[in-house]
Simulated assay, not measured.
Amino acid sequence: MFGYRVPSPDEAMLISGGRRGLGGAPFRVVTGHGKFVLPIFRKTRFLSLAMSEAEVVEKCVTRQGISLTVRAVIAFKVGNDTESIVNAGQRFLSDQDQMSVLTGRIFAGHLRSIIGSMTVEEIVTERQKLAAEVLDTSKAEMAKIGLIVDSLQIQSIDDGATGYIDAMSAPHKAAIQRQAQIAQAQATQASTQAEQEAQRNQAEYARQTAVVQAQYKAEIDRAQAAAAQAGPLAQAHAEQEVLMARTELAERAAELRQQQLVAEVVKPAEADAERIRVMAIAEAERMKIQAEAAASYDRVALDRMLIDQLPQIVKEAASGLAGANVNVLNGADGLGEIAAGLVGQGLTILDSVRRNLGTPDGETKQPGGDIQRYLGAASSPVDGGNAAKRSGDDGPVDIR
Protein backbone atom coordinates (compact mmCIF):
# COMPACT_ATOMS: atom_id res chain seq x y z
CA MET A 1 0.00 0.00 0.00
CA PHE A 2 1.25 3.46 -0.78
CA GLY A 3 3.07 4.98 2.23
CA TYR A 4 2.91 1.79 4.42
CA ARG A 5 6.35 0.35 5.15
CA VAL A 6 7.19 -2.96 6.91
CA PRO A 7 10.73 -3.93 8.08
CA SER A 8 12.11 -7.47 7.64
CA PRO A 9 12.32 -9.76 10.70
CA ASP A 10 16.08 -9.11 11.04
CA GLU A 11 15.84 -5.35 10.39
CA ALA A 12 14.90 -2.23 12.29
CA MET A 13 13.07 0.54 10.44
CA LEU A 14 14.30 4.05 11.28
CA ILE A 15 11.84 6.87 10.43
CA SER A 16 13.28 10.35 10.48
CA GLY A 17 11.38 13.61 10.18
CA GLY A 18 8.56 14.71 12.37
CA ARG A 19 8.69 13.73 16.01
CA ARG A 20 11.90 12.68 17.64
CA GLY A 21 12.46 9.20 18.90
CA LEU A 22 13.27 7.75 22.35
CA GLY A 23 15.68 9.81 24.40
CA GLY A 24 15.73 12.66 21.89
CA ALA A 25 16.91 10.45 19.04
CA PRO A 26 16.57 12.04 15.61
CA PHE A 27 14.45 9.10 14.39
CA ARG A 28 11.85 6.65 15.56
CA VAL A 29 12.53 2.89 15.70
CA VAL A 30 10.01 0.37 14.38
CA THR A 31 10.59 -3.43 14.60
CA GLY A 32 8.30 -6.38 14.03
CA HIS A 33 5.40 -4.43 12.46
CA GLY A 34 4.62 -1.91 9.70
CA LYS A 35 3.85 1.78 9.86
CA PHE A 36 2.45 4.52 7.57
CA VAL A 37 5.12 6.89 6.40
CA LEU A 38 4.17 10.17 4.77
CA PRO A 39 6.02 10.60 1.54
CA ILE A 40 8.22 13.65 1.16
CA PHE A 41 7.75 14.56 4.86
CA ARG A 42 9.24 11.38 6.30
CA LYS A 43 12.34 9.39 5.38
CA THR A 44 12.79 5.68 6.05
CA ARG A 45 16.08 3.75 6.48
CA PHE A 46 16.73 0.13 7.57
CA LEU A 47 19.39 -1.14 10.02
CA SER A 48 20.34 -4.86 9.92
CA LEU A 49 19.91 -6.84 13.14
CA ALA A 50 21.45 -9.99 11.66
CA MET A 51 24.51 -11.77 13.02
CA SER A 52 27.86 -10.44 11.84
CA GLU A 53 31.37 -11.84 12.11
CA ALA A 54 34.75 -10.24 12.68
CA GLU A 55 38.09 -12.02 12.45
CA VAL A 56 41.11 -10.87 14.42
CA VAL A 57 44.73 -11.88 13.76
CA GLU A 58 46.91 -10.13 16.27
CA LYS A 59 50.52 -10.49 17.39
CA CYS A 60 50.67 -10.33 21.17
CA VAL A 61 53.44 -10.51 23.76
CA THR A 62 52.95 -12.64 26.88
CA ARG A 63 54.01 -11.85 30.41
CA GLN A 64 57.13 -13.92 29.75
CA GLY A 65 58.05 -11.73 26.76
CA ILE A 66 57.29 -14.42 24.20
CA SER A 67 55.62 -13.24 21.01
CA LEU A 68 52.48 -15.11 19.98
CA THR A 69 50.21 -14.75 16.99
CA VAL A 70 46.60 -15.22 18.08
CA ARG A 71 43.73 -15.79 15.67
CA ALA A 72 40.18 -15.22 17.00
CA VAL A 73 36.65 -14.99 15.60
CA ILE A 74 33.96 -12.73 17.12
CA ALA A 75 30.22 -13.23 16.48
CA PHE A 76 28.23 -10.04 17.20
CA LYS A 77 25.05 -8.16 16.26
CA VAL A 78 23.08 -5.02 17.00
CA GLY A 79 21.13 -5.30 20.23
CA ASN A 80 17.37 -5.86 20.01
CA ASP A 81 16.43 -3.09 22.44
CA THR A 82 15.62 0.41 21.16
CA GLU A 83 18.58 2.03 22.90
CA SER A 84 21.08 -0.33 21.20
CA ILE A 85 19.38 0.22 17.83
CA VAL A 86 19.55 4.01 18.28
CA ASN A 87 23.26 3.85 19.26
CA ALA A 88 24.16 1.58 16.36
CA GLY A 89 22.02 3.54 13.88
CA GLN A 90 23.70 6.81 14.74
CA ARG A 91 27.15 5.21 14.22
CA PHE A 92 26.79 2.66 11.43
CA LEU A 93 23.58 3.43 9.50
CA SER A 94 25.38 5.02 6.55
CA ASP A 95 28.15 2.35 6.45
CA GLN A 96 27.09 -0.80 8.24
CA ASP A 97 30.21 -2.73 7.12
CA GLN A 98 32.22 -0.61 9.52
CA MET A 99 30.71 -2.58 12.42
CA SER A 100 32.95 -5.59 11.66
CA VAL A 101 36.06 -3.44 11.27
CA LEU A 102 35.49 -1.53 14.48
CA THR A 103 34.61 -4.67 16.41
CA GLY A 104 37.83 -6.36 15.24
CA ARG A 105 39.91 -3.43 16.33
CA ILE A 106 38.25 -3.23 19.72
CA PHE A 107 38.80 -6.94 20.40
CA ALA A 108 42.38 -6.80 19.11
CA GLY A 109 43.22 -4.21 21.73
CA HIS A 110 41.58 -6.14 24.56
CA LEU A 111 43.22 -9.37 23.35
CA ARG A 112 46.69 -7.82 23.51
CA SER A 113 45.96 -6.49 26.98
CA ILE A 114 44.72 -9.80 28.40
CA ILE A 115 47.49 -11.91 26.80
CA GLY A 116 50.11 -9.53 28.18
CA SER A 117 49.02 -10.52 31.70
CA MET A 118 49.18 -14.29 31.10
CA THR A 119 51.89 -16.90 30.49
CA VAL A 120 52.16 -19.11 27.45
CA GLU A 121 51.16 -22.14 29.52
CA GLU A 122 48.00 -20.39 30.73
CA ILE A 123 47.11 -19.18 27.26
CA VAL A 124 47.57 -22.63 25.73
CA THR A 125 45.84 -24.62 28.46
CA GLU A 126 43.15 -22.09 29.43
CA ARG A 127 41.76 -20.71 26.20
CA GLN A 128 38.26 -20.51 27.58
CA LYS A 129 39.48 -18.35 30.44
CA LEU A 130 41.21 -16.04 27.94
CA ALA A 131 38.03 -15.68 25.87
CA ALA A 132 35.88 -15.01 28.94
CA GLU A 133 38.20 -12.25 30.18
CA VAL A 134 38.27 -10.58 26.75
CA LEU A 135 34.46 -10.65 26.59
CA ASP A 136 34.10 -9.21 30.08
CA THR A 137 36.46 -6.31 29.39
CA SER A 138 34.86 -5.46 26.02
CA LYS A 139 31.21 -5.80 27.02
CA ALA A 140 30.73 -2.22 28.26
CA GLU A 141 32.54 -0.71 25.30
CA MET A 142 30.52 -2.76 22.81
CA ALA A 143 27.27 -1.77 24.52
CA LYS A 144 28.04 1.91 24.01
CA ILE A 145 28.03 1.44 20.24
CA GLY A 146 24.86 -0.69 20.37
CA LEU A 147 26.53 -4.06 19.72
CA ILE A 148 26.40 -7.31 21.72
CA VAL A 149 28.86 -10.21 21.37
CA ASP A 150 27.40 -13.69 21.18
CA SER A 151 30.71 -15.60 21.22
CA LEU A 152 34.47 -15.31 21.02
CA GLN A 153 36.54 -18.26 19.82
CA ILE A 154 40.34 -18.49 19.97
CA GLN A 155 41.13 -20.41 16.80
CA SER A 156 44.90 -20.69 16.97
CA ILE A 157 47.98 -19.65 18.93
CA ASP A 158 51.32 -19.63 17.12
CA ASP A 159 54.74 -18.87 18.60
CA GLY A 160 56.42 -18.56 15.24
CA ALA A 161 59.99 -19.87 15.07
CA THR A 162 60.66 -19.81 18.82
CA GLY A 163 59.49 -23.41 19.31
CA TYR A 164 58.33 -22.66 22.86
CA ILE A 165 55.00 -24.38 22.50
CA ASP A 166 56.65 -27.43 20.93
CA ALA A 167 59.20 -27.56 23.75
CA MET A 168 56.39 -27.22 26.27
CA SER A 169 54.63 -30.18 24.74
CA ALA A 170 57.80 -32.29 24.44
CA PRO A 171 57.46 -33.98 27.90
CA HIS A 172 53.89 -34.82 27.14
CA LYS A 173 54.87 -36.14 23.73
CA ALA A 174 57.63 -38.23 25.31
CA ALA A 175 55.21 -39.57 27.92
CA ILE A 176 52.69 -40.38 25.24
CA GLN A 177 55.36 -42.08 23.14
CA ARG A 178 56.55 -44.02 26.18
CA GLN A 179 53.03 -45.10 26.97
CA ALA A 180 52.58 -46.06 23.34
CA GLN A 181 55.76 -48.14 23.41
CA ILE A 182 54.72 -49.80 26.67
CA ALA A 183 51.32 -50.52 25.24
CA GLN A 184 52.92 -51.94 22.11
CA ALA A 185 55.25 -54.14 24.19
CA GLN A 186 52.36 -55.32 26.33
CA ALA A 187 50.37 -56.06 23.22
CA THR A 188 53.30 -58.01 21.75
CA GLN A 189 53.75 -59.93 25.01
CA ALA A 190 50.05 -60.67 25.22
CA SER A 191 50.09 -61.83 21.61
CA THR A 192 53.07 -64.12 22.29
CA GLN A 193 51.45 -65.51 25.42
CA ALA A 194 48.23 -66.10 23.56
CA GLU A 195 50.09 -67.88 20.78
CA GLN A 196 51.98 -70.08 23.26
CA GLU A 197 48.79 -70.76 25.17
CA ALA A 198 47.13 -71.78 21.94
CA GLN A 199 50.00 -74.17 21.18
CA ARG A 200 49.78 -75.66 24.68
CA ASN A 201 46.05 -76.06 24.30
CA GLN A 202 46.54 -77.81 20.99
CA ALA A 203 49.08 -80.18 22.55
CA GLU A 204 46.75 -80.83 25.50
CA TYR A 205 43.86 -81.51 23.15
CA ALA A 206 46.04 -83.91 21.16
CA ARG A 207 47.04 -85.74 24.36
CA GLN A 208 43.45 -85.99 25.54
CA THR A 209 42.42 -87.27 22.13
CA ALA A 210 45.11 -89.97 22.25
CA VAL A 211 44.05 -90.99 25.79
CA VAL A 212 40.41 -91.19 24.80
CA GLN A 213 41.27 -93.23 21.73
CA ALA A 214 43.32 -95.65 23.87
CA GLN A 215 40.42 -95.95 26.33
CA TYR A 216 38.02 -96.67 23.50
CA LYS A 217 40.36 -99.36 22.13
CA ALA A 218 40.70 -100.96 25.58
CA GLU A 219 36.92 -101.00 25.98
CA ILE A 220 36.54 -102.59 22.55
CA ASP A 221 39.11 -105.26 23.45
CA ARG A 222 37.35 -106.00 26.74
CA ALA A 223 34.01 -106.23 24.98
CA GLN A 224 35.41 -108.66 22.44
CA ALA A 225 37.00 -110.81 25.18
CA ALA A 226 33.75 -110.79 27.14
CA ALA A 227 31.84 -111.83 24.04
CA ALA A 228 34.27 -114.73 23.50
CA GLN A 229 33.78 -115.90 27.11
CA ALA A 230 30.05 -115.35 27.18
CA GLY A 231 29.17 -118.94 26.18
CA PRO A 232 31.20 -120.82 28.85
CA LEU A 233 30.26 -118.29 31.50
CA ALA A 234 26.58 -118.67 30.70
CA GLN A 235 26.86 -122.47 30.96
CA ALA A 236 28.65 -122.23 34.31
CA HIS A 237 26.06 -119.77 35.65
CA ALA A 238 23.24 -122.07 34.56
CA GLU A 239 24.80 -125.07 36.35
CA GLN A 240 25.40 -122.99 39.46
CA GLU A 241 21.78 -121.88 39.50
CA VAL A 242 20.65 -125.55 39.18
CA LEU A 243 22.82 -126.53 42.17
CA MET A 244 21.47 -123.63 44.20
CA ALA A 245 17.90 -124.63 43.37
CA ARG A 246 18.54 -128.24 44.43
CA THR A 247 20.18 -127.11 47.67
CA GLU A 248 17.24 -124.88 48.47
CA LEU A 249 14.81 -127.75 47.74
CA ALA A 250 16.73 -130.08 50.11
CA GLU A 251 16.71 -127.45 52.86
CA ARG A 252 12.98 -126.97 52.51
CA ALA A 253 12.42 -130.78 52.67
CA ALA A 254 14.50 -130.99 55.88
CA GLU A 255 12.53 -128.14 57.43
CA LEU A 256 9.26 -129.85 56.50
CA ARG A 257 10.41 -133.15 58.08
CA GLN A 258 11.44 -131.33 61.24
CA GLN A 259 8.04 -129.70 61.48
CA GLN A 260 6.36 -133.10 61.00
CA LEU A 261 8.44 -134.63 63.84
CA VAL A 262 7.53 -131.77 66.12
CA ALA A 263 3.84 -132.16 65.31
CA GLU A 264 3.81 -135.98 65.62
CA VAL A 265 6.17 -136.63 68.60
CA VAL A 266 7.14 -133.54 70.57
CA LYS A 267 3.76 -131.88 70.80
CA PRO A 268 1.86 -135.04 71.97
CA ALA A 269 4.55 -135.76 74.60
CA GLU A 270 4.36 -132.20 75.89
CA ALA A 271 0.56 -132.46 76.01
CA ASP A 272 0.70 -135.73 78.06
CA ALA A 273 3.21 -134.24 80.50
CA GLU A 274 1.06 -131.18 80.97
CA ARG A 275 -2.03 -133.33 81.56
CA ILE A 276 -0.24 -135.44 84.21
CA ARG A 277 1.07 -132.31 85.95
CA VAL A 278 -2.39 -130.74 86.02
CA MET A 279 -3.96 -133.95 87.40
CA ALA A 280 -1.31 -134.19 90.14
CA ILE A 281 -1.90 -130.57 91.15
CA ALA A 282 -5.64 -131.18 91.20
CA GLU A 283 -5.25 -134.33 93.36
CA ALA A 284 -3.02 -132.53 95.85
CA GLU A 285 -5.46 -129.67 96.04
CA ARG A 286 -8.32 -132.11 96.63
CA MET A 287 -6.49 -133.85 99.49
CA LYS A 288 -5.62 -130.50 101.08
CA ILE A 289 -9.23 -129.39 100.94
CA GLN A 290 -10.40 -132.69 102.48
CA ALA A 291 -7.87 -132.40 105.33
CA GLU A 292 -8.90 -128.83 106.06
CA ALA A 293 -12.56 -129.85 106.01
CA ALA A 294 -11.91 -132.75 108.47
CA ALA A 295 -9.99 -130.54 110.87
CA SER A 296 -12.68 -127.90 110.70
CA TYR A 297 -15.35 -130.54 111.42
CA ASP A 298 -13.50 -131.87 114.53
CA ARG A 299 -13.12 -128.38 115.98
CA VAL A 300 -16.77 -127.56 115.39
CA ALA A 301 -17.80 -130.82 117.11
CA LEU A 302 -15.49 -130.09 120.05
CA ASP A 303 -16.80 -126.55 120.46
CA ARG A 304 -20.35 -127.79 120.37
CA MET A 305 -19.60 -130.42 123.05
CA LEU A 306 -17.94 -127.82 125.29
CA ILE A 307 -20.83 -125.44 124.87
CA ASP A 308 -23.25 -128.23 125.78
CA GLN A 309 -21.22 -129.04 128.96
CA LEU A 310 -20.82 -125.38 130.01
CA PRO A 311 -24.05 -125.27 132.10
CA GLN A 312 -22.96 -128.44 133.86
CA ILE A 313 -19.57 -126.90 134.62
CA VAL A 314 -21.14 -123.81 136.09
CA LYS A 315 -23.57 -125.92 138.04
CA GLU A 316 -20.80 -128.06 139.53
CA ALA A 317 -18.83 -124.95 140.45
CA ALA A 318 -21.87 -123.45 142.11
CA SER A 319 -22.56 -126.62 144.08
CA GLY A 320 -19.15 -126.25 145.65
CA LEU A 321 -20.39 -123.08 147.26
CA ALA A 322 -23.41 -124.74 148.79
CA GLY A 323 -23.40 -124.49 152.58
CA ALA A 324 -20.58 -121.95 152.55
CA ASN A 325 -20.88 -119.00 154.89
CA VAL A 326 -20.75 -116.12 152.41
CA ASN A 327 -21.65 -112.63 153.46
CA VAL A 328 -22.68 -110.25 150.72
CA LEU A 329 -21.46 -106.79 151.58
CA ASN A 330 -22.88 -104.71 148.76
CA GLY A 331 -26.31 -106.18 148.14
CA ALA A 332 -27.42 -106.92 144.60
CA ASP A 333 -24.11 -105.80 143.15
CA GLY A 334 -22.31 -108.31 145.31
CA LEU A 335 -24.53 -111.15 144.11
CA GLY A 336 -23.88 -110.10 140.51
CA GLU A 337 -20.16 -110.17 141.12
CA ILE A 338 -20.36 -113.69 142.58
CA ALA A 339 -22.38 -114.92 139.59
CA ALA A 340 -19.95 -113.29 137.18
CA GLY A 341 -17.08 -114.95 138.97
CA LEU A 342 -18.71 -118.36 138.60
CA VAL A 343 -19.29 -117.82 134.88
CA GLY A 344 -15.72 -116.57 134.42
CA GLN A 345 -14.42 -119.67 136.17
CA GLY A 346 -16.41 -121.80 133.77
CA LEU A 347 -15.02 -119.96 130.77
CA THR A 348 -11.50 -120.39 132.11
CA ILE A 349 -12.06 -124.11 132.40
CA LEU A 350 -13.37 -124.10 128.81
CA ASP A 351 -10.23 -122.36 127.49
CA SER A 352 -7.97 -124.77 129.36
CA VAL A 353 -9.78 -127.70 127.85
CA ARG A 354 -9.34 -126.25 124.36
CA ARG A 355 -5.59 -125.68 124.85
CA ASN A 356 -5.02 -129.21 126.13
CA LEU A 357 -6.93 -131.01 123.38
CA GLY A 358 -3.81 -131.91 121.41
CA THR A 359 -1.13 -134.41 122.52
CA PRO A 360 2.65 -134.15 121.84
CA ASP A 361 2.51 -136.91 119.21
CA GLY A 362 -0.20 -135.05 117.26
CA GLU A 363 -3.14 -137.22 118.39
CA THR A 364 -6.34 -135.56 119.55
CA LYS A 365 -7.52 -136.22 123.11
CA GLN A 366 -10.98 -137.31 123.88
CA PRO A 367 -12.87 -134.28 124.98
CA GLY A 368 -14.95 -136.23 127.49
CA GLY A 369 -12.05 -137.16 129.83
CA ASP A 370 -10.72 -133.62 130.15
CA ILE A 371 -14.14 -132.25 130.76
CA GLN A 372 -14.79 -134.78 133.49
CA ARG A 373 -11.39 -133.98 135.05
CA TYR A 374 -12.12 -130.28 135.15
CA LEU A 375 -15.61 -130.89 136.42
CA GLY A 376 -14.23 -133.00 139.27
CA ALA A 377 -11.82 -130.27 140.26
CA ALA A 378 -14.55 -127.69 140.18
CA SER A 379 -16.99 -129.80 142.28
CA SER A 380 -14.61 -130.36 145.27
CA PRO A 381 -16.34 -129.37 148.60
CA VAL A 382 -15.56 -125.97 149.96
CA ASP A 383 -16.06 -125.42 153.68
CA GLY A 384 -17.12 -122.25 155.27
CA GLY A 385 -13.86 -121.67 157.09
CA ASN A 386 -11.77 -121.96 153.91
CA ALA A 387 -14.16 -119.79 151.99
CA ALA A 388 -13.97 -117.20 154.64
CA LYS A 389 -10.19 -117.44 154.65
CA ARG A 390 -10.00 -117.04 150.81
CA SER A 391 -12.20 -114.03 150.95
CA GLY A 392 -9.98 -112.52 153.63
CA ASP A 393 -12.92 -111.96 156.07
CA ASP A 394 -12.97 -113.02 159.76
CA GLY A 395 -16.77 -113.44 159.88
CA PRO A 396 -19.98 -112.09 158.64
CA VAL A 397 -20.16 -108.34 158.17
CA ASP A 398 -23.37 -106.54 158.52
CA ILE A 399 -24.39 -104.19 155.83
CA ARG A 400 -25.75 -100.96 157.16
Rank of each mutant, 00 (worst) to 15 (best):
V343Y: 15
A132Y: 01
S84T: 15
Q229E: 13
I176C: 04
D361T: 10
A72M: 04
G376N: 14
L47T: 08
Y4P: 02
D272P: 00
R63S: 11
P381S: 08
A236Y: 07
I399F: 11
K59R: 05
V278P: 00
A187E: 14
D393I: 14
E285T: 13
Q215A: 14
P268Q: 08
L47V: 10
D351I: 09
A273T: 04
A271W: 04
G376Y: 05
I307Y: 03
Q96E: 07
G160Q: 04
K129V: 06
V326H: 05
N330M: 09
A54P: 09
V101F: 02
L350M: 12
L375C: 06
A377Y: 06
R275W: 06
G392W: 01
D95L: 11
T69N: 12
G65M: 06
E219D: 12
I349N: 01
K173T: 09
T44K: 05
T44C: 10
I349S: 03
A339T: 09
I40S: 04
G344S: 08
V61P: 01
G385E: 15
Q90C: 12
A108D: 11
R178Q: 14
E121L: 14
A203P: 00
G368V: 10
Q189W: 06
L130Q: 00
Q229G: 02
Q202R: 09
E255W: 02
D370H: 00
N201Y: 09
H110V: 07
D10N: 05
R400T: 04
V278K: 13
E251M: 13
I399R: 15
V212A: 05
A294V: 09
A295R: 09
